[in-house]
């Protein structure tokens, strides 16, 4: 079966620093593929290139068999690729429901409508409320996004990713800054999504990654040093040396 996402020979430098170094990676349909790596390994740079906010120097990104290397970000999103943000990136002055409804609208299309009131649009509202229920935020739908806690913001990010019904979800450290209870809740949420969407998960939390991933790739200085099942990665000596250290 052809890979949903296929990255080959990707390179990106900032000045003298190679943030992405001859990177090859694939995500199969339905797979949860996790990327781990120490700080500064180039994880977020990789996500930025995948969603189109940064241009790679060389290399190709194929999505659903189509070369999307030079496709602008808003079109990639419409092709079925969505991303969440490591640093919470919501529209803070809008309500929680409006944030989700906007993501629903992005998939629904028809954004060039000037007449009907969007907040009274049942199609947007009902889907947004259903998604909020799925991530456990239905009670806070009318609050402004800024009023919610960090953990709740992380859940909103997931709801937005779900709203797009994207075939591929690029999740940039969904557990970042969460406490242990909150992390458990997030792992549970992601387990529920897994299999229904293909996911490329970038994450620091090792327990979470080993609990969730079908395959894991280890990124060090912009280069993938190993790809395999969680068990493979756990027993890989190069990985232990480069990244897991004495913890492994």
């Amino acid at each position: 079966m052809a890979a949903l996402l296929d990255i080959s020979g990707l390179n990106k430098s900032f000045g003298g620093i190679k943030a992405t170094d001859d990177l090859n990676l694939s995500v199969e349909p339905g797979e949860l593929h996790a990327i781990i790596g120490p700080n500064g390994a180039g994880k977020t740079t990789l996500i930025s290139q995948l969603c189109g906010l940064q241009r790679p120097d060389t290399g190709a990104i194929r999505f659903k068999g189509r070369d999307v290397t030079h496709v602008p970000p808003h079109r990639r999103a419409r092709l079925g690729m969505t991303r969440s943000y490591q640093i919470t990136s919501l529209i803070m002055e809008m309500s929680v429901r409006d944030n989700i409804a906007l993501a629903v609208q992005a998939r629904d299309g028809h954004a060039f409508r000037f007449i009907a009131a969007a907040r009274k649009d049942r199609r947007l509202r009902e889907q947004a409320d259903a998604l909020l229920a799925r991530v456990g935020l239905q009670a806070k739908a009318d609050m402004k996004a800024v009023a919610l806690s960090h953990g709740e913001h992380r859940h909103m990010e997931i709801a937005i990713a779900l709203a797009s019904q994207a075939e591929l979800m690029l999740l940039d450290e969904p557990m970042a800054g969460l406490g242990s209870e909150e992390t458990k809740a997030m792992v549970k949420l992601l387990k529920g999504i897994k299999g229904k969407h293909s996911i490329l998960l970038i994450e620091h939390d090792m327990d979470a990654v080993f609990a969730l991933a079908d395959r894991i790739s280890v990124l060090v200085y912009g280069h993938i040093i190993a790809t395999g099942t969680p068990d493979d990665i756990r027993s890989n000596s190069a990985v232990q040396q480069a990244y897991l250290g004495e913890d492994a």
């Binding site: 906010l53 970000p73 808003h74 079109r75 969505t82 990136s89 529209i91 803070m92």
Partner: peptide, 13 residues
Amino acid sequence: GNNERTVTLGFNT
């Protein structure tokens, strides 16, 4: 509020 987020949602802002 957040241009980049709106773009990555799929809107050509």
